[in-house]
Simulated assay, not measured.
Amino acid sequence: MPQWLNWPLVRQLTGSDPLGRGTAARSRRTEDLRARTEQADEVVRSVCPYCAVGCGQQVFVRDGEITQIEGDPDSPISRGRLCPKGSASRELVTSPGRQTKIRYRRPHGTDWEDLDLDTALDMIADRVLATRDATWQRTDDQGRTLHRTMGIASLGGATLDNEENYLMKKLYTALGAIQVENQARI
């Protein structure tokens, strides 16, 4: 059979697909392609991390690596749809530019250095406690009891669930912070 008989236009004009949207448009390479979702070992349900809508996602995993993220058709919020940012959220995990180490630049420094997790957490805790101590208000100008700090505030993220917000509110209240807010509004 001559090779030109296998061209898409010839298949479209002579076959059962005159609009060229089915078999006429398929090549040998197209037939060999498989969806990344078919190769997954497991599918994990998740929530898109970008905004307050909370669209459901299906995360397809193979050999411990994310291969694809798609909208979850069982989600009552998004019904299987994702916006462009949600559709590209796989890049949050798989991008070669993603930072996987704790990076720190000292005050007035010009170079970044890597820190281990324990050191970074100790630095954060020391700074939170120092800020709390430096800005602690036991009483106001009229002698009324306050027991608060205005030096620590929290702005929660849009994808925190109720339980996470509850725990964060408890933490900041225990520190004496009264400026606790969440931007999860539509």
Rank of each mutant, 00 (worst) to 15 (best):
R26F: 14
T100Y: 10
R106I: 09
P107Y: 12
V47N: 04
Q12K: 15
V180F: 14
L115H: 09
Y104D: 07
D111V: 01
A40S: 11
G54K: 00
L5C: 09
D63W: 11
T159C: 06
E42P: 01
Q183C: 10
V93C: 13
L171V: 12
D133Q: 09
S87E: 05
M150D: 08
T94Y: 06
G86T: 00
P73L: 02
T94R: 05
Q137L: 13
N165Y: 03
T100F: 12
R81S: 03
E70Y: 01
A88K: 02
A120F: 08
T145M: 04
A130Q: 07
L171C: 08
Y172A: 12
W112T: 05
L171Q: 06
M123L: 15
R28I: 14
D114R: 13
D114L: 11
R81I: 06
R127Y: 04
P49A: 12
Q68R: 14
L117P: 09
A134V: 00
P2H: 07
R21E: 15
D114T: 15
I124Q: 03
P8G: 03
R28C: 01
Q3L: 12
L19F: 10
T159M: 07
D114W: 06
R34K: 15
R79L: 02
L175R: 08
A153C: 13
L146V: 11
S78K: 10
G80D: 04
C55W: 02
R138F: 04
T100P: 02
D141Q: 11
R36S: 13
Q137I: 06
S87W: 01
R21P: 00
G86N: 00
N6H: 07
G156Q: 10
R29Y: 03
S89C: 13
M150R: 08
G15H: 10
L167K: 08
H147M: 08
L9R: 11
T149E: 09
S89F: 02
C83W: 04
V43R: 10
R90L: 15
I69L: 12
R105L: 11
R98H: 04
R138K: 08
Y172L: 15
A130I: 03
L121P: 00
V93S: 09
R185H: 14
D63T: 15
G143S: 05
Y166R: 06
S46E: 05
D133K: 01
A88W: 01
R62I: 04
D122W: 05
D126Q: 14
M123K: 15
L167W: 09
L167Q: 11
H147S: 07
M1I: 06
R79F: 02
W7Y: 12
V128A: 00
Q3F: 06
R98I: 03
W4E: 14
C55Y: 00
K169R: 13
S27I: 08
P107K: 14
Q68N: 02
E70N: 11
